[in-house]
């Protein structure tokens, strides 16, 4: 639709502008022209900084944000609940458990050991949820399964911390779970990209069925929606995208919850039209937050997840207040 094209166009322009800001923000200060020139040629220390440090960080911010926004929108559509978010089905918690075990075991010395361990954890979480929630169960089974998996992964993470003989590992774990995009390499991008892409494709294919599901499972099934297939698409798609995002960036909350909320009105509340908008919106939000952490406390490594929660929670409260007040 024409109105959607305009919305998606302006969101894409916002993402592009924020990506540029992300490339130009950092301790090695560069002007707009010098920065673009260095990025283009890749020459000199500034070229290396831009190409090897800031470019992967920017690309990851876009990928992680898009994954979280898209997964949030798809899960809200599937569960027909505006309070659903990617963390709900337990993927973030089980990915975190994988990472925590890896850090504790000293795998963090290997370049991409932690992300791969986190992916393994996410995979285990998905298997458990699909097993728990059963084949024919609806949204409620999925939510309850997710709560159980989150609780289990959370308990095991706490157990690892509890019994950790190494205070440095415990410190690492604590920082990792806060979520950050600092010091990420192209290796991280390449680790996450294939799974994320697979997740995006699966979620994008679910769009039309999610529209029909707005009328309830029974009506959707009568209109030709294969509910079992839709459920697999959404759960596996969200798990792949969020699992990969958590593996490379740690736990980043609120994006998947707030972004679909903010954009729902602009797309006439239609789930399929919300998906691309939420992906772009998520990318913009994570980029903006990642620029903000570098601007606010450049010396102290303010964590992205902390920043997001600090901004996200008040925004969410405001949204609830507005909805309760009948806008």
């Amino acid at each position: 639709m024409r109105r959607d094209a305009r919305l998606l166009g302006s969101l894409a322009a916002l993402v592009a502008a924020l990506a540029l800001a992300s490339l130009l923000t950092g301790p090695a200060d560069a002007g707009l022209r010098a920065g673009i020139e260095a990025l283009w040629t890749g020459e000199g220390p500034l070229g290396i900084v831009l190409r090897e440090i800031r470019a992967p960080r920017t690309v990851l911010a876009i990928m992680v944000g898009a994954s979280l926004g898209l997964s949030g929108a798809a899960l809200q559509g599937y569960l027909r609940n505006p309070l659903a978010e990617p963390g709900l089905i337990g993927i973030s918690a089980s990915a975190a458990l994988g990472a925590v075990v890896a850090i504790q075991a000293g795998v963090s010395a290997l370049a991409l050991g932690v992300p791969f361990a986190a992916l393994g954890g996410a995979l285990g979480g998905v298997a458990l949820i699909l097993g728990l929630a059963g084949r024919r169960a609806g949204g409620l089974g999925l939510i309850l399964g997710g709560i159980a998996v989150s609780a289990l992964a959370g308990a095991l993470t706490a157990l690892v911390l509890n019994l950790s003989p190494n205070p440095f590992a415990a410190y690492d774990i604590m920082f990792w779970t806060m979520g950050s995009l600092a010091d990420r390499s192209w290796g991280h991008v390449l680790t996450a990209a294939p799974l994320m892409l697979a997740g995006w494709v699966a979620l994008a294919r679910a769009g039309r069925d999610l529209d029909a599901l707005s009328l309830g499972e029974e009506a959707a099934a009568s209109m030709g929606v294969n509910l079992a297939r839709l459920r697999l698409l959404v759960v596996l798609g969200a798990a792949a995208a969020v699992g990969a995002a958590t593996a490379v960036a740690g736990a980043i909350g609120f994006v998947g919850l707030v972004v679909p909320h903010l954009l729902r009105g602009a797309v006439g509340a239609m789930p399929s039209r919300l998906l691309p908008a939420a992906a772009l919106g998520g990318a913009a939000l994570v980029l903006a937050a990642d620029v903000a952490v570098r601007l606010i406390l450049p010396e102290r490594d303010l964590k992205l997840g902390v920043m997001m929660a600090l901004v996200g929670a008040p925004v969410f409260l405001h949204l609830i207040w507005r909805t309760q007040a009948g806008r």
Binding site: R80, G216, S222
Partner: peptide
């Protein structure tokens, strides 16, 4: 089947302000 038969369920649900 959806092209041959249409079904109106008893529950009048609509999840979103469409």
């Amino acid at each position: 089947r959806a092209r041959r038969a249409a079904w109106l369920p008893q529950a009048r649900e609509i999840a979103w302000p469409i």
